[in-house]
Design a protein around this nucleic acid. Structure first.
Lengths: 149, 149
DNA sequence: ACATAATATCTGTATATACATATATTTGTA
DNA sequence: TACAAATATATGTATATACAGATATTATGT
């Protein structure tokens, strides 16, 4: 469905503005679905993303800075998201021995298990929402990579 | 730059997950630039988007429901964003004569003037951030439209 | 070694947001 | 017509977020 019909707007001030709106709208739409699944597990999208970053590092720890660097939403407050994950025993913070400014953040086995539970469901949801062939998925990825320069 | 390098993650649990991350990351990156410009005018991204919706209707009023329908982020609270715009005299609410449940929302001349000031700057910023040919922009728009089904 | 800058993280505070619920009005139906 | 359901919006409340410092530690230049 054309983005014009989706948000009921025929004209955009430029093709670039239209593209940005299309990207953000589409991202939100897919994220919305994922969010529904996460809600059942009492996770926010950002908490989920940080958990995945921690799993990517496991069994090595990440630092808060590393998390900020890899987060999708650079605006947000990584330190407090880690607070929330720690509160739920999904992650654990320990002081870095070498650089005492850094906090080592590790995903716990409970965190790993939770992600494991979610993996298949979210993968299936994303696949069912993305109406593209594998070739189109690749083209789209390549164009987005090129877009950012 | 490949999304893998951008967020320093080599493997994704599926190509669909990778695509979603790529879309959200790219949208955030462009939005971040736009947000910098809006901050100088004391506008949030969402307030800006609602203002543009109101301009699209002008000189006819929009209703809150219409705004929700056209917003990029369906999660958010349109009524309170209109509150903020009204507080800044950028929009105005009046009761709909026919259906008293509805609030007619109109952009003010101050709102129109503000958008006018922003138009060129934001258009230029978006264009400079999107490193694609016009043909690629079109392909990307088409693929995103198809993705959503 | 000392002072200064840079870095990593944390925290106070104001604002924004999500969610559930409340309120008012209109629509549909028996 | 009366009454339940649907619709449009607003609001209370808990939580999340952004932003601006604050704090602690490490790196750098002299």
């Amino acid at each position: 469905m054309r983005i014009e019909d989706e948000i009921k707007q025929e004209k955009f001030s430029s093709v670039y503005t239209k593209l940005l709106i299309n990207i953000v709208y589409t991202g939100n739409k897919i994220s919305f679905k994922t969010n529904e699944i996460l809600k059942e597990k009492n996770l926010t999208l950002q908490q989920y993303n940080v958990l995945r970053i921690l799993r990517g590092q496991h069994p090595n720890p990440a630092t808060v800075n590393m998390i900020i660097d890899r987060m999708l939403d650079k605006m947000s407050n990584a330190s407090r998201i880690v607070d929330k994950l720690e509160l739920k025993k999904l992650a654990q913070r320990t002081m870095n021995k070498v650089d005492k400014r850094c906090a080592d953040v590790l995903i716990t086995s409970k965190g790993l298990a939770l992600l494991n539970e979610l993996d298949e469901e979210i993968k299936a949801s994303e696949k069912s929402v993305i109406h593209l062939t594998l070739k189109e998925v690749k083209t789209l990825n390549d164009l987005l990579d090129k877009l950012r320069g």
